[in-house]
Amino acid sequence: MAADRRTMIEITNVSKSYRRDSLEIPVLHSVSLVVPEGEFLALMGPSGSGKTTLLNLIAGIDRPTSGNVIVNGVDIGMMNESTLARWRSSNVGFIFQFYNLLPVLTAYENVELPLLLTSLKKKGRREHVEAALRLVGLGDRMSHYPKQLSGGQEQRVAIARAIVTDPTIIVADEPTGDLDRVSAGEIMALLEQLNAEYKKTIVMVTHDPRAAEKAHTVMHLEKGELSA
């Protein structure tokens, strides 16, 4: 964690509370965090401590109640919905615990989805999709539907979908949470590879110490407050 590396994510005094009916539920209390480019950060903490909430703020699918979230030099809190949507599609790759593939689409089509928002033509999209699926080791499963794949394979399709647009950061919310040890190991190896070879900045939420081991830095979130 050399200090001369460029800052990728800068979170300053971010608070977040949810409103349920008239009740204000505070989740994050004045959280500050700096993540340099190329970092592989693991966020740990008990259930309900606000890990997913923090990840969503970094990824630009939720907004802080107060404070700033600056990613790759832009203050994403200042963007309107459609600008933010466009920003997400080119800057962030998402990996979810339950893969969240569209069941009616094949592996190939699922990975192609984010590319439909780009100006790429069919041939260009094909090249990208095939490269991404080969990278995750599923070059031979392109026409399979999610229900024809194992959990580990589904998550690898999801990773292919996350990287196909070549985003600058990858956010992963418990990517191994639903997998057996072997599959989890494969997924972690992939994330390590993305970080080491492709220089992706990765922020990963996990409960799994074995997964957290692979990260460069581990931070703990407890009752809405961050500690190393």
Binding site: I61, A85, R88, S89, L102, L117
Partner: peptide
Amino acid sequence: TQEYAVLKTLGFT
């Protein structure tokens, strides 16, 4: 509902 949320996450409007 969840699929639409995923699509929106990916940048669909």
